[in-house]
Write a protein that binds this DNA or RNA. Sequence first.
RNA 1: GGCCCCGUCGUCUAGUCUGGUCUAGGACACAGGCCUUUCAAGCCUGCAACACGGGUUCAAAUCCCGUCGGGGUCACCA
Length: 516
Amino acid sequence: MTRTRFAPSPTGYLHIGGVRTALFCWLFARKHGGQFILRIDDTDQQRNVQEALEPILHGLRWLGIDWDEGPDVGGPHGPYYQSQRWKRYEEAVERLLASGHAYRDYARTEEVQAEREAAQREKRPFVYSRRFMAQSDADARRFESEGRQAVVRLMMPRDGKLVLDDLIRGRVEFDWAQEQDHVIQRADGSCLYHLASTVDDHAMQITHVIRAEEHLSNTPRQVFIAQALGYELPQYAHLPFVAEPGSKTKLSKRKLAKYLKNREFAQLLEHGQRIAARLGLATDPESFNPVIVDFYEQAGYLPEAVLNYLALLGWSLDERTEHFSRDELIGHFSLERVNRAPASFDPAKLSAFQQRHFNQLPAERKAALALPFLQRAGLAPSPAGGDVERFVERVVAAAGDRLRVAGDILDFDEFFVTDEQLAYDPKAVEKRLRKDDAPELLRKYRDRLAALEPFDPATLERDMHDFLAAEGIQVGQIIHAVRVAVTGKQVGLGMFDALALLGRDRCLGRMDRALT
RNA sequence: GGCCCCGUCGUCUAGUCUGGUCUAGGACACAGGCCUUUCAAGCCUGCAACACGGGUUCAAAUCCCGUCGGGGUCACCA
């Protein structure tokens, strides 16, 4: 049975790099008919775990990355919070101590630090002297009488090497002597990540540890712990990390200011901010930006599109297939085809995937996704006729691929506001309505519309040709003025679609308003 | 600095294991053109890469050696 796990810390948000790792773990488990486990690494967090965890669970759910065991769903190997698994870690520490694979160390932090600095000065690799290792109870008592407190350190081998067969990197070798005597338990009894993680992976019967490359270097100490405890080793697969836009450095939320200088990243953010602002949401880049998965949900991206893009960040099927549904991803995924080099996050490409996925949706579905955005923006759709859903659907259909994400519907607010609420872009008015004979032509055209039957795009277009012929003008001389008069903007849908959508009365009303 | 990983168009990548079909293919982005009532979209065209140096071979992106470059990691964080 294949079992993988994703073990996030409750940090309050779901990072794009983290979710890519989760996705690969999930795909691998699903592909092999196994289980995907979510375990919360909260060994270091004290407060508000639930609050800091919620956005992460929410983001995974939104993407459709479901877990078979973990928070909310439980499972036979719980609890799934490391903060609730102390006993198991303590038992493991006791066993390690008893078997001589670990020791109590009474060094003060500064003392170890001094040794480390000395080694650095002398340009030799640092190896802890074990000067304060308690080899007997007498030692322990003596150290304690000096007011010292013990931590538990791993007794790492000082020769030999570890040969690891990584599913992605292949054969990797490490000298044991390079490894430090890592602390696995603090003086207060709390245990550290590597110990906890190794114990849990075994307890939860994880068969494949799939994680980002930054963990490759600390795999030896986990292997040491696992072997000392007599565990069967899981298979390891170290994914390339997700890098910054246009760079090979690891993507990090902290360097946001730098990414903002990337044109495409800034555009993606700006687009999302425009939507969020209309919804009255926070647009502060610290909490709302393309490095955080939540950003995409807020702006109305499709989870499948984000998933599709993320899957291709380090994995590919062949030389040309790029478009995958969630199920296709599961069907094709394999660790053999995961790349070894870091993949940098490309905002423009993500945007292109979104566009492709979104545009293949039927208008009905797009409308269903767009409607909540209108409602949340307070643009209670007031259809000319028929029900609200139907009207939104007609606008969406006319918008075609001008809509790239569901939130883009807010760019077409002119169809959802009253004639009185309609805002006119001053520049557009100046350019299209104030010049030359524009008002006069607009007035003539307005009067034709008043009598036109039926009021649909085809008829409107035919009539326009007649109008042009009668006046001896080019289409450009009238249509811009009409557009600005009825929508307030210089850009938008096809003109005849827009007129038909608004209906005769509203078109006439808006033209009258524009002409005064 | 030690150790480890990585290195194909600006970016994501195919090709590397199993040398020849690679004067290196696709996609995104970019530039130009067509279409056009605006903006998109669409269609066409273009720009653009095997990090470098040796070797092995009839033949190297592919195999070997070295160099350089980038990154990760060296916590009583995860």
